[in-house]
């Protein structure tokens, strides 16, 4: 797992992991970064090559009140962006 952060984006590269560890990892990060997500406009970006994760992660974070978008990148992985809905 690689982590990088610019001003508002926290990027996790979890390529190589499969579900449910992808999901558990993401949920743990969403839980720990709750304040930043809701109040500071932070977006968590997950890079994964596990296809199941593109379903399980958006569904789970939606139940928690977040928006999740999935984008398939040319490099051969999926980018899932998680953010708080606009007020």
């Amino acid at each position: 797992m690689k982590e990088s952060q610019n001003t508002n984006n926290i990027v996790y590269d979890i390529r190589g992991q499969i579900c449910p560890s992808c999901l558990l990892f993401t949920l743990r990060e969403v839980n720990t970064k709750r304040h930043a997500l809701k109040n500071e406009g932070v977006t968590i970006i997950i890079k994964t090559d596990n296809r199941n994760a593109t379903t399980t992660i958006p569904e789970a974070v939606a139940n928690m009140g977040y928006l999740a978008t999935v984008e398939k990148r040319e490099e051969g992985y999926y980018q899932i962006e998680i953010m708080a809905p606009p007020q």
Binding site: P20, T56, E59, A60
Partner: peptide, 10 residues
Amino acid sequence: IGTMPLDPDE
């Protein structure tokens, strides 16, 4: 939550 069970191999 609606996701799959844990895989012991993983």
